[in-house]
Design a protein around this nucleic acid. Sequence first.
DNA 1: CTGAAAGCGCTTACAG
DNA 2: CTGAAAGCGCTTACAG
Lengths: 335, 335
Amino acid sequence: MITLKELADRCGVSTATVSNAINGKSNISETTKQRILQMIKETGYKPNFMARTLRVNSKRTIGLVIEELAAFSSAPIIEGIMRYFEKQKYETILYNMRVYSNPNWMNDEDFVQTCVNNAVEELLSKQVNGIIHVAEHSRKLKYYNENLPVPVVISYAYPDERKLPYVSIDDNSSTAKMAEYILSKGHKKIAMICGSKDNLHAEKRCNSFKRVLKEHGVPLDENLCVYANWTRETGKAAAAKVLKKGVSAVFCHNDFIAAGVYDYLYEKNLQPGKDLLVTGFDNHIISSFLHPEITTMKLPLLEIGEKSAELMDNLLENDSTCTEGFEIPCELILR
Amino acid sequence: MITLKELADRCGVSTATVSNAINGKSNISETTKQRILQMIKETGYKPNFMARTLRVNSKRTIGLVIEELAAFSSAPIIEGIMRYFEKQKYETILYNMRVYSNPNWMNDEDFVQTCVNNAVEELLSKQVNGIIHVAEHSRKLKYYNENLPVPVVISYAYPDERKLPYVSIDDNSSTAKMAEYILSKGHKKIAMICGSKDNLHAEKRCNSFKRVLKEHGVPLDENLCVYANWTRETGKAAAAKVLKKGVSAVFCHNDFIAAGVYDYLYEKNLQPGKDLLVTGFDNHIISSFLHPEITTMKLPLLEIGEKSAELMDNLLENDSTCTEGFEIPCELILR
DNA sequence: CTGAAAGCGCTTACAG
DNA sequence: CTGAAAGCGCTTACAG
């Protein structure tokens, strides 16, 4: 690949002049400028990005630490971030940790910590101005130590006690909306199939749901609250436990659990939606392909991305010490 | 951020010595090495990646031009590519063109060409050794002119007459498998709902399906072959046209069309799978959430990614002029 | 084992 | 309007 120096030689001018031509400086005669641009076309010269930023020593680049690019939530969050930064003329670079490469990653904090360390190392060496961590699912992250030279924003999860700005979803208000919807349909005997124990989402949804039902004078029977593990299979198993007890509605903590409930109902020759109201959470694409389509809560993934980017922008341009967190409400999708 | 020079000053050694310590060279005493490493920890020094590669002038980096990160096929293909290159010690950098930002992108070749030009510009300026173009859907791509300084591989699509190496799916053999499956179930009156006209997949699947049916003495009635536009809605509309004619099986060119057929059947109080055999294509996640789950063809996305990476590796390490293309068969998923 | 010096490909005052 | 020179943060022969 030809360099700026070689290009200058071919044109019989100095490197400074070529540089000025390329960067559209005004202090250059039109004729030499045209000669240089012509030569650039002929030779296919491309400026060396590394050399340039090394010299200029100022880039506007945000590093994205993606836990798992293949997670269904990642792409929309990234889209939200990129959309925002495109307007703000920041470049984004992705680092995909690919945590799914370790099937046991959820129980292996050391593994994830190592991944994060590598990611941060690489992004810092690429001189990013800030880091946004895009989580695979919401939990308390403790991977970032406090003396990093650039700000960090947590997207789709929470920081631990080391306070970091974050954007996640508002499980409480969202669950409340769902509870009120179910109550508005006149149901009195309601079940709940929760996500895994010790999970932040599950905990919040569980508490919020119980609280709202209680407030409406229809407290949840503890026997009608069981745990699954976010999957279709565990959802079906949970359904078998709880649905014999004559409930008329069941609130599932995600759409896959709800799909498992459907499986159970089909097996018993019961009709979802008619014999039992089933509601989900996430608005995963599958939720509109269940039959009948299921009422669910839409995760504001794009908005989470955009808000995360906005927080980072603010951190960089204004207050670099802000540790505010945001929870964005979900949207009830009636079907 | 502290530089190597400053670090050297603090340790009272030369920059050469620090560099040697960092890069694990053997020509350095253990004591000074320890002193330097200790100082690195204290100061949080990170080497500047740009400066390093500028000097060393050899990176092993592959640029990925992603048409749309949010496309359902993109993440698995990227995963395949990254998995391969991780072993080969190549770094990958992503450029997300985000074509969905233009709803009309499919009919706007100029728009896509501009996106590609920007992507290539940026990746070349970052000194990538090669470019893999990850398409959103299969078609003939004519975005890359022949005098690029690095090799290009097309992933999940085809090159135009300018021959480039590519990896796509084998529509012919996959469709043949599907046709034989349907025939093996004894169906004689079979319909087909194709993807959009002028689409490469649709064309191949259409021709292949007709050929196999003919070979088995059950030629497809031309009236039973209609076009949809890959979506659920157009699939349903197509079903309305073709299913009145008493067919017992319908081959849909993708799972969304099949979902549309389900919608039509439900509306008519007919049972998919019982009153009509419906088969899909793609093994999109929704295919296992339709009720009943649908028989489909699994796209070998991971394999496409891995093979693309392997082609690039080969191009770089061995024959830089190879323009071989590969088509990978899909897997029949019986449900 | 250690350091002085050159140079990777650019940009930017500055002098003319 | 143009060019000589310094320098961004590193690494690498080379001399000692």
